[in-house]
Amino acid sequence: MELLIQRLIDGTSNGFLYGAVALALVLIYRSTGLMNFAQGEMAMFSTFVVWKLADERLGFGLALAIAIPAGIVFAFLLGAVLERAVIRPFSGGNPLTLLIVTLGMFLAINALAGYIFTTDTERLDSPFPSGGLSLGGVTITYLEMGTVVVLLVVALLIRQLFMGTKLGLGLRAAAMNPSSSRLAGIDVGRMMMIGWGLASAIGAIAAILVAPVVYVSTNMMAALLLYGFAAAVVGGFDSPFGALVGGVLVGLIQSLASGYLPFIGTQLQLATAFAVILLVLLIRPQGLFGRLPVERV
């Protein structure tokens, strides 16, 4: 029984991380109609910025309270600049071209991070105290609690931004109907930059939260991005709410599958994400909360 609860807790906490990555993917998909394969690498690069600012031996030794917000702001700017400089020149063209462009960004950012920072694996401290609460045989670490709370708050803030502010209305309008938005005087290009910036910042928050567990390296986001894709597929690629629910579901499936199916263990964990993607695409291609694309006249 304790083991089951422990697995549910670990799965939920991981699931929120997958959900955050999925949310970043969904925001960009909704605004640009594009699957951003570079999402994980953008987050990885921003986490390296946090590490560089905070590390006492190889960096500037700043407090995490300064380094983390700075890294998130950097991530926002990185996303906005990449949209303007790399994505925009190809927009309106063949979707396949854009897909290849994001794959190119993936490789370029990965290589740049190794060149600028390091190809070694580095440590980044957790922003939360070590240890956790134990009850019976079940332990919730402060990092797990902090991860869930932070990402819940981020999700609620994003919801409030999109549904409750004028900027949010502009972001939604520009994503739904760019040409009509332009006719209404909305600077669609600026909205795209902000959308990419937000997505990049959310991805960075997830990466910073996972860094204490997986450490900081150029490949730190490989698994998380795959789980994020699985979560987005489960929830529906056009549903921000679905992204979070999908994340938690994928986290739970992963945790339970590797706990109770001996042949999966820890080695085949990533394969569960792939299996989930395949199953959902076969049974319900639009995901739990997504909608099938409708031809509009």
Partner: peptide, 26 residues
């Protein structure tokens, strides 16, 4: 310069009020 385009350019997934707010965005 206001423009009612061919095909109306409605934001179909938004409410009537949101559509109007978009028109007054600037």
């Amino acid at each position: 310069i206001g423009h009612v385009p061919e095909g109306r350019g409605t934001f179909v997934d938004l409410t009537v009020e949101e559509n109007l707010r978009i028109g007054a965005y600037h």
